[in-house]
C-alpha cells in the first residue's frame, strides 16, 4: 500500500493550534532551564578554574557525574525515583513533570556550560594572569578586571551553541509526559496516523527556534567583540 500524504493535517484544527502550543512550551522549557543552567554552570566552571584544589575537585565531580549519564536516564530519575522519597506533598504536586523537566535539563546543561566556562578562562593566556598580579592586583581583582572580561567574550560562541542545544534537548521532556513540540507531533500521529507530516512540521519548528537564536547571538557577538582578540590565531 502506498502512503497517502496529507499535508493539510498541519494546518487543520486542532492540530495547528496544538503545534503552536507545543512550540511555545518548548521555548518555555528551554528558557526556564537556561535560567538554572547559566548561573549554575558559570559557578561550577569558575570553581574549576580556582587555585584551590577542593573547589576544583567539586567542580570536576559535578561535571563528570552529569555528563556521563544520559539525559533521558537523569530525567527518569528525577521524575520517577526521587518524588516518592519526598513524601506525598511533592509526589502529588500538579505539573510535577514540568518542574522535573526544567530542573533536570537545567542542572544537566549546567555541567556542559561549566566546561565552556572553564576552557574560556583557560584560554586567557597565562601571561595575562602574571601581568595582572605583577601590577599589584589581588587574585579577586585579577578575576574581576582581567580574566572575566576577556574570558566571557571568548565563551560567547560556545555558549551560543549550548543555548541552541538546550532547546534541542528539551525534546526529551516528552518522555516524562510533557506535550511540547516533539510530544505534540507524536500525539498528532496517534490521532491521524500522519506521523511523517507531523514530525516534519515539528522539525520546522525547531529550525525556526535555531535560526532565530543564531541570528540574535550573531548580533550580540558583534557588539561585544574585543578587537583583535577573537580572530587572533
Amino acid at each position: 500500500m502506498a502512503y497517502q500524504f496529507d499535508w493539510s493535517i498541519i494546518w487543520s484544527e486542532p492540530y495547528f493550534r496544538w503545534l503552536i502550543i507545543g512550540l511555545i512550551k518548548t521555548i518555555e522549557i528551554g528558557l526556564l532551564s537556561w535560567i538554572i543552567a547559566l548561573p549554575l554552570g558559570i559557578g561550577i566552571g569558575t570553581l574549576r578554574s580556582l587555585p584551590n584544589k577542593a573547589c576544583r575537585a567539586i567542580g570536576a565531580i559535578y561535571v563528570e557525574f552529569f555528563r556521563n549519564i544520559p539525559l533521558l536516564v537523569q530525567l527518569f530519575f528525577w521524575y520517577y525515583a526521587i518524588p516518592p522519597l519526598l513524601g506525598t506533598r511533592i509526589s502529588r504536586l500538579p505539573n510535577l513533570e514540568w518542574y522535573c523537566a526544567i530542573f533536570g535539563l537545567g542542572i544537566y546543561t549546567a555541567s556542559r556550560v561549566a566546561e565552556h566556562v572553564r576552557s574560556g578562562f583557560n584560554s586567557v593566556p597565562i601571561g595575562q594572569r602574571f601581568a595582572a598580579l605583577s601590577t599589584g592586583l589581588s587574585q579577586f581583582q585579577m578575576f574581576r578586571y582581567v580574566i572575566i572580561p576577556y574570558g566571557f567574550r571568548i565563551m560567547i560562541p560556545p555558549l551560543t551553541t549550548e543555548f541552541l542545544t538546550i532547546f534541542k534537548n528539551s525534546a526529551l521532556a516528552m518522555t516524562i509526559g510533557i506535550l511540547e513540540l516533539s510530544g505534540i507531533s507524536w500525539r498528532i500521529n496517534e490521532y491521524t496516523f500522519h506521523g511523517f507530516e507531523a514530525t516534519t512540521a515539528a522539525i520546522g519548528g525547531y529550525l525556526i527556534i535555531g535560526l532565530t537564536i543564531i541570528f540574535l547571538m550573531g548580533q550580540l557577538e558583534k557588539r561585544l567583540r574585543v578587537p583583535g582578540l577573537m580572530r587572533r590565531e
Binding site: 528539551s170 507524536w186 500521529n189 511523517f196 514530525t199 516534519t200 515539528a202 522539525i203 525547531y206
Partner: peptide, 14 residues
C-alpha cells in the same frame, strides 16, 4: 539543528 529525538521519529515514520 534538529533534535536527535525528532530525527528518530522522522526516520521511524519515513
Amino acid at each position: 539543528n534538529v533534535p536527535l529525538l525528532m530525527l528518530i521519529f522522522w526516520i521511524y515514520f519515513s
